[in-house]
Amino acid sequence: MRRAELVFAAGLVVAGLVFLQEALRLPTGWTPSGPGPGFFPFWLATGFTLTGLVVLARTWKASHDPTKSFAPPGAWKRVLVVFLPMVGVVAFLHTLGIYLGGGLYLAAYARFVGRHRWPLVLAVSIGVPLVLFFVFERWFVMPLPKGTVLEWWLYGRR
């Protein structure tokens, strides 16, 4: 637990420094007509970094409590099993689009995580994207990323 806290607090400090560096590219001073665009980003980033350091120092001083653990055993695996496919859907958005990608994600989740039976899995993973497609593309006429695969199938080459 303590190690996780330390690593995370250190990460926040690093993030603060990155923000600070970005803020320093702006005019951080006080102009005759009020604060410049970089004034608040600079001081906020400074405040954030300093507070992060305080958290880090406090955690460092705190004694290690072996009864507390960051996560129950096997938690990491389960979290990643859920999270990585989410990343996959977004990463392949360009080719698969939200409808195909979403359908695959639903199917995989329902089958391998939920251990539902195939008929249900198929019904959900085909039905949901279809409904979404009609709701968004047809009804709301809201173009969402369809992905090259679906575009090719719907409209052929352009």
Partner: peptide, 14 residues
């Protein structure tokens, strides 16, 4: 949950 969670994720993404 195994149907709801991915469905929510997809709706959130949209």
């Amino acid at each position: 949950f195994a149907i709801l969670a991915p469905l929510i994720t997809i709706l959130c993404s949209i």
